[in-house]
């Protein structure tokens, strides 16, 4: 489902004398449906960079990144948008939303974008928010006013609202209390059972051991400086 092949990444800093920083070379990995693969490596090894390339957020310098048959490295923006709408989800570490939009709407949005009707989308969003223990009295407020942990849970609810066949998770259990951490691990296990291919970064070693089938050390893809 996710197939990364011989990917290279460099950053060129034009405003700092045109410095070219090679950060990754020969990155290859595969994630099959129903499988969860963890990216490991020291901070700065390129875990997030690799994940962002899979999402189309960073440009790969060379190589192929196929998700559901589309090569994200060379696809047109509108093809990537369609992929993100239907196939590829991403739970980032930080929630980015339009100010003023209520939490319930924020969580419903991915479902509405796939064409689901409002009532069904709302039911799904309510279920997820309740499951992640966001008090109902907060649902009509913008999540921008919430605590860090609450924002993280809204972000997870949003990321799981549509059942994406491929899912990227960046530290999904960071800053969660034990009960919510348990819930998120269950949700990941359910997504796997539903056939989702998951690529994740988990600093929490125990969480990683519980939901991940394999680990890939990104340090192996470090570019020779």
């Amino acid at each position: 489902m996710i197939d990364v092949e011989n990917v290279t990444k460099t950053f060129t800093l034009h405003n700092q004398g045109g410095a070219v920083i090679p950060v990754m070379q020969g990155a290859s990995l595969r994630v099959a449906p129903g499988e969860c693969v963890a990216l490991t490596g020291a901070s700065g090894a390129g875990k997030s960079t690799l994940m962002r390339m899979v999402y189309g957020n960073y440009l790969a310098a060379s190589g192929a990144i196929r998700v559901g048959g589309l090569d994200v490295a060379t696809a047109e923006p509108r093809e990537i948008l369609a992929l993100r709408r239907r196939t590829l989800g991403y739970v980032s570490q930080f929630l980015r939303v339009v100010p003023r939009v209520p939490t319930l709407e924020v969580v419903m949005e991915p479902c509405l974008a796939t064409g689901m009707d409002r009532a069904a989308a709302e039911e799904r969003a309510r279920g997820l928010l309740a499951r992640l223990r966001i008090p109902e009295r907060l649902w009509s407020l913008s999540p921008l006013t919430f605590s860090g942990g609450e924002q993280q849970r809204v972000n997870i609810a949003r990321g799981f609202a549509h059942e994406y066949p491929a899912l990227l998770l960046d530290e999904p259990t960071a800053s969660l209390d034990p009960a919510n951490r348990e819930t998120v691990l269950e949700m990941i296990a359910e997504a796997k059972a539903g056939g989702a291919a998951i690529l994740g970064i988990f600093h929490d070693a125990e969480a990683r051991a519980r939901v991940c089938d394999r680990e890939i050390d990104v340090g192996a893809f470090a570019a020779a400086a």
Partner: peptide, 21 residues
């Protein structure tokens, strides 16, 4: 030109890098 988040998060051209930074 490109996907909005890609251009803003991984700008390729010197001018875009200056604009974003």
């Amino acid at each position: 030109t490109g996907l909005t988040d890609q251009v803003l998060d991984d700008p390729q051209h010197a001018y875009t890098q200056l604009l974003v930074s």
